[in-house]
Write a protein that binds this DNA or RNA. Sequence first.
DNA 1: CAATGATCCCGTCAAGTTCG
DNA 2: CGAACTTGACGGGATCATTG
Length: 105
Amino acid sequence: MAVTGDETETGTSGDLTACQLQNTGSSLPQGGAETSTQGFVKSANPSQKREHRLMKNREAARECRRKKKEYVKCLENRVAVLENQNKTLIEELSSIKDIYRHKVE
DNA sequence: CAATGATCCCGTCAAGTTCG
DNA sequence: CGAACTTGACGGGATCATTG
Protein backbone atom coordinates (compact mmCIF):
# COMPACT_ATOMS: atom_id res chain seq x y z
CA MET A 1 0.00 0.00 0.00
CA ALA A 2 1.36 3.33 -0.94
CA VAL A 3 0.37 5.76 1.69
CA THR A 4 0.98 8.79 -0.37
CA GLY A 5 -1.85 10.49 1.35
CA ASP A 6 -1.26 13.52 3.42
CA GLU A 7 -4.91 13.95 3.73
CA THR A 8 -6.86 12.41 6.59
CA GLU A 9 -9.95 14.08 7.76
CA THR A 10 -8.36 16.55 10.02
CA GLY A 11 -10.78 18.75 11.79
CA THR A 12 -10.59 21.77 9.58
CA SER A 13 -12.93 22.86 12.31
CA GLY A 14 -15.26 23.50 9.48
CA ASP A 15 -18.94 23.82 9.75
CA LEU A 16 -19.77 21.31 7.17
CA THR A 17 -23.23 21.98 6.08
CA ALA A 18 -23.67 20.69 2.61
CA CYS A 19 -20.84 19.36 0.57
CA GLN A 20 -22.23 20.41 -2.68
CA LEU A 21 -20.62 19.81 -5.97
CA GLN A 22 -22.01 21.43 -9.08
CA ASN A 23 -21.02 24.65 -10.61
CA THR A 24 -20.71 27.17 -7.94
CA GLY A 25 -19.69 29.31 -10.78
CA SER A 26 -16.66 29.59 -8.62
CA SER A 27 -13.17 30.16 -9.79
CA LEU A 28 -12.35 28.80 -13.19
CA PRO A 29 -10.69 31.32 -15.43
CA GLN A 30 -13.43 30.86 -17.93
CA GLY A 31 -14.12 34.33 -19.14
CA GLY A 32 -10.81 35.40 -17.89
CA ALA A 33 -7.87 37.11 -19.37
CA GLU A 34 -5.51 35.53 -21.79
CA THR A 35 -6.90 34.39 -25.11
CA SER A 36 -9.78 36.54 -26.12
CA THR A 37 -11.69 33.49 -27.10
CA GLN A 38 -14.21 35.28 -29.19
CA GLY A 39 -12.17 36.69 -32.02
CA PHE A 40 -9.71 33.89 -31.95
CA VAL A 41 -12.09 31.03 -32.46
CA LYS A 42 -13.51 32.62 -35.52
CA SER A 43 -10.31 33.38 -37.32
CA ALA A 44 -8.36 30.29 -36.36
CA ASN A 45 -7.67 27.42 -38.69
CA PRO A 46 -8.93 23.92 -37.76
CA SER A 47 -5.74 22.77 -36.14
CA GLN A 48 -5.50 25.95 -34.11
CA LYS A 49 -9.10 25.48 -33.08
CA ARG A 50 -8.36 21.97 -31.99
CA GLU A 51 -5.33 23.07 -30.05
CA HIS A 52 -7.39 25.74 -28.37
CA ARG A 53 -10.14 23.31 -27.51
CA LEU A 54 -7.69 20.83 -26.09
CA MET A 55 -6.08 23.48 -24.00
CA LYS A 56 -9.43 24.62 -22.66
CA ASN A 57 -10.45 21.09 -21.86
CA ARG A 58 -7.14 20.38 -20.17
CA GLU A 59 -7.73 23.26 -17.81
CA ALA A 60 -11.36 22.29 -17.34
CA ALA A 61 -10.39 18.76 -16.39
CA ARG A 62 -7.89 20.05 -13.86
CA GLU A 63 -10.51 22.28 -12.30
CA CYS A 64 -13.08 19.53 -12.34
CA ARG A 65 -10.72 17.21 -10.48
CA ARG A 66 -9.86 19.87 -7.98
CA LYS A 67 -13.52 20.44 -7.20
CA LYS A 68 -14.20 16.75 -6.93
CA LYS A 69 -11.33 16.28 -4.54
CA GLU A 70 -12.60 19.12 -2.41
CA TYR A 71 -16.05 17.60 -2.44
CA VAL A 72 -14.78 14.21 -1.31
CA LYS A 73 -12.77 15.79 1.47
CA CYS A 74 -15.87 17.60 2.60
CA LEU A 75 -17.85 14.37 2.65
CA GLU A 76 -15.13 12.68 4.64
CA ASN A 77 -15.24 15.44 7.21
CA ARG A 78 -18.97 15.08 7.39
CA VAL A 79 -18.67 11.36 7.99
CA ALA A 80 -16.24 11.98 10.82
CA VAL A 81 -18.55 14.47 12.49
CA LEU A 82 -21.59 12.24 12.15
CA GLU A 83 -19.70 9.30 13.56
CA ASN A 84 -18.78 11.37 16.58
CA GLN A 85 -22.36 12.50 17.01
CA ASN A 86 -23.54 8.95 16.77
CA LYS A 87 -21.07 7.82 19.35
CA THR A 88 -22.10 10.58 21.72
CA LEU A 89 -25.77 9.76 21.32
CA ILE A 90 -25.17 6.09 21.96
CA GLU A 91 -23.33 6.92 25.16
CA GLU A 92 -26.06 9.29 26.20
CA LEU A 93 -28.72 6.70 25.60
CA SER A 94 -26.77 4.15 27.53
CA SER A 95 -26.48 6.37 30.59
CA ILE A 96 -30.16 7.28 30.44
CA LYS A 97 -30.99 3.59 30.39
CA ASP A 98 -28.76 3.14 33.39
CA ILE A 99 -30.52 5.83 35.34
CA TYR A 100 -33.89 4.37 34.48
CA ARG A 101 -32.80 0.90 35.53
CA HIS A 102 -31.68 2.12 38.93
CA LYS A 103 -34.97 3.85 39.50
CA VAL A 104 -36.94 0.76 38.67
CA GLU A 105 -34.91 -1.50 40.90
C1' DC B 1 18.07 -4.64 -6.49
C1' DA B 2 14.59 -5.73 -10.03
C1' DA B 3 9.73 -6.93 -10.44
C1' DT B 4 5.24 -5.91 -9.15
C1' DG B 5 1.16 -3.73 -7.42
C1' DA B 6 -1.20 0.41 -5.67
C1' DT B 7 -2.11 5.14 -6.03
C1' DC B 8 -1.85 9.67 -7.95
C1' DC B 9 -2.06 13.02 -11.54
C1' DC B 10 -2.54 14.16 -16.25
C1' DG B 11 -4.37 14.57 -21.07
C1' DT B 12 -7.82 13.23 -24.19
C1' DC B 13 -12.31 11.77 -25.81
C1' DA B 14 -17.18 11.48 -25.76
C1' DA B 15 -21.63 12.39 -24.06
C1' DG B 16 -24.48 15.29 -21.46
C1' DT B 17 -25.73 20.04 -19.88
C1' DT B 18 -26.06 25.00 -20.08
C1' DC B 19 -26.49 29.34 -22.25
C1' DG B 20 -26.81 33.03 -25.75
C1' DC C 1 -29.51 25.28 -32.57
C1' DG C 2 -24.61 25.62 -31.96
C1' DA C 3 -20.74 26.80 -29.04
C1' DA C 4 -18.83 26.38 -24.65
C1' DC C 5 -18.63 24.04 -20.39
C1' DT C 6 -18.69 19.87 -17.28
C1' DT C 7 -17.59 15.37 -16.06
C1' DG C 8 -17.06 10.18 -16.33
C1' DA C 9 -14.12 6.87 -18.48
C1' DC C 10 -9.83 5.36 -20.28
C1' DG C 11 -4.93 4.88 -20.93
C1' DG C 12 -0.29 6.24 -19.65
C1' DG C 13 3.65 7.98 -16.92
C1' DA C 14 5.64 8.79 -12.24
C1' DT C 15 6.35 7.52 -7.57
C1' DC C 16 6.37 4.67 -3.50
C1' DA C 17 6.13 0.28 -0.79
C1' DT C 18 6.55 -4.46 -0.64
C1' DT C 19 8.43 -8.87 -1.75
C1' DG C 20 11.45 -12.54 -3.33
